Amino acid sequence: MEEDQNFLEDDRNSLEDSPFSIEDDRPSIGQILQQARVDARLSVDDISNSTRVRVPIVHGIEQDDFSRCGGDVYARGHIRMIARAVGVDPEPLVERFDADHGGRPAPTPAAPLFEAERIRPERRSPNWTAAMVAAIVTVVGFVGFTVFGGEEDTGGKGKQAAEGPKPQKSGVKPTPSKPAPKPEPSDSAIAAAPLDKVTVRLSAIEDKSWISAKAHDGKLLFDGLLNKGDSKTFQDDEQIDLILGNAGAIELFVNGKKVEDEFEAGQVERLSYTQGDPEAG
C-alpha cells in the first residue's frame, strides 16, 4: 500500500510540474492518459503488463514523446491500447494525434483476394453402392462354394447333402467404408500459393480486432478495425509485417497454410512473414 501511494504521489507531482498545465488550458494526450491511470490507481508496470507495450514507451507517451513508438501507425495503436486499459475512449485521442501529425494515413487497396479455402481438399463421401455390391458378391460366392464344393468332396453323398436343410441366409451386413483421411494441408496448400510472393490472409472469427499491415518497403497496406466475420488478404514480393491488436480473434493463413500458433484474446502480436513455409516473426 505504501509503494502504491508513493508512485501515485510521484505521478501527481509530475502532472503538476508539466508545462502544459500552465501554457495550455487543454490537457495533452499524454496528460489525459497519465491522469486516467493515476485515477485508476494503476502503475506504469500495470499498463505495460496488460497492453504488452514496453515501460519506456508508456513513459514516453505520457510525456507526449512518441519517438519510441516506431512510427505514427504504431503510436496510434499504443494510444488505443493504453486508453482502453485506463478506461478512456481512445477515438478522440487518436483523432487529436492525427490532427497533430498530418492526418490519418489513407489505407491502400489490398492485394487481389486469395481464397485459401480453394486449396483445401474436398472430403469424399463413402461409396455405399460399391460396398453393398461387394458384400452381396461375397455372400453369394460363399454360399455357392459351400453347396457345390460339398458335392464334389462327398461324391455320392452330395445328393443327400443337397436334400437336407437349406443353408440359412448369411447375416453378414456390409461394412461401410471409412472416409479417406483428410490430408495435411501444408504441402499442397503451399504449392498452390504463388511461390514468388508472400500471401497473408486474416479472418476475424471470434471477435473484432485492430490490425496493421505493411509491405517490405514500409508501405502501409492496411490500418484499421477488422470486424467479426470480415477478412483481408495482402501480398508482397518479399515480406509482410503485421500487428494484431486482438490476436486471439484472428484466423491466419500464410502462403496458403494455416498458422497454428495459439494467440490469446486481447493479446498484441507483431509478426513478419516471408515466402515459403510460414514462421512467426
Rank of each mutant, 00 (worst) to 15 (best):
R41H: 12
Q5I: 07
G60F: 00
A130C: 06
P126F: 06
E163F: 10
P109S: 06
G256A: 00
P176T: 03
K228F: 01
L220T: 14
A280Q: 12
S212A: 11
A83M: 03
E2D: 11
D277Q: 10
D223K: 09
A83V: 03
D196K: 14
F142D: 06
W210F: 13
G164W: 11
T233Q: 06
L220C: 08
V137K: 02
T138I: 04
I119N: 01
H216C: 09
D207H: 14
K159A: 06
G70V: 09
S209F: 08
K157N: 12
E115N: 12
K197L: 11
G102M: 05
N246M: 01
D98K: 05
V88F: 00
K232M: 06
P105D: 09
G103W: 10
H216L: 06
K257E: 02
R76G: 07
S43G: 08
P278S: 00
G224N: 05
K219F: 05
V147A: 14
E152G: 08
G281S: 01
F142H: 09
H78P: 00
V172Q: 15
F66A: 03
S177G: 11
V198E: 04
A265E: 04
F20H: 09
G71T: 04
E251L: 01
M1W: 12
A191D: 12
V268N: 02
N49A: 07
E163H: 13
A134V: 09
G158D: 03
L113V: 05
N6I: 15
A134L: 11
Q235I: 03
G150P: 10
P121Y: 15
G71H: 04
A106M: 12
L244N: 04
P107F: 01
N127A: 06
V44D: 13
V139R: 15
S170M: 08
S203L: 11
V58G: 01
D45C: 08
E62R: 00
L252A: 01
L220E: 11
P194V: 06
L221N: 07
R104P: 04
E163C: 06
G150H: 13
T233W: 04
I22D: 15
S231V: 14
A249H: 03
C69F: 02
G102E: 05
G171L: 06
G266D: 02
Q34P: 02
A191Y: 05
D223R: 11
D153Q: 12
G102C: 07
P179M: 08
A162Q: 11
K157Y: 06
T233G: 07
E262C: 02
Q267P: 00
Q168C: 09
I250E: 01
I47C: 07
R120F: 13
V88M: 00
D24L: 13
T108Q: 15
E184T: 03
P185R: 12
L195G: 15
T129E: 10
V133H: 07
I29E: 13
W128A: 13
A189W: 15
E269A: 10
Q31R: 15
P165Y: 12
A110D: 05
G103F: 10
F66H: 04
V147N: 14
G87V: 04
A135W: 11
V198F: 03
K159L: 03
G60D: 04
E3G: 08
S43R: 08
